[in-house]
Amino acid sequence: MDDLGVVIAFWALAAMTIGAAAMLILVRNLMHAILFLILSFVGVAGLYITLSADFVAVAQVLIYAGAISVLMIFAVMLTPLSERDNSGNFLQLPALVLSGLVIAGVTFVALETEWREAGRGSFDTTAAEIGEALLSPFVLPFEIASVLLVAAMIGAIVIVRDD
């Protein structure tokens, strides 16, 4: 029964994530596409929860659904296009080929990999462990990432400043 619940949740969330992702490509209205993207993000967050990674799940919602999507909304709103439509362009065919290749590759990897099944984790304080991991073994990448972000921020300010 316990496992059944998780399995049902997994399939439901997977369907939601993939369905939303598919709709994101299919809808013509850019705003709708972004909303489907958010739905997809939320589905991924749900998948993290089934993996007992509560911190990552919440961070996913906070950062992706809450912040990244807002950036995308800004991008769409600032696009000087009178109708916010996902109109066709000359890149359609290359994009189709590329995505076909990606799908093939991912399917191949998924089918061919020897998947190891992890034991069910529990809702322990994952946040503390992540924090310790970030600040002791991975402190260098962590700091480099923050330097990169500061650089990006300064770059953004320089770009936005007039004259």
Binding site: L78, P80, S82, I159, V160, D162
Partner: peptide, 8 residues
Amino acid sequence: MAIKTEPL
């Protein structure tokens, strides 16, 4: 570089 916006 300034961002152009449509007048409203």
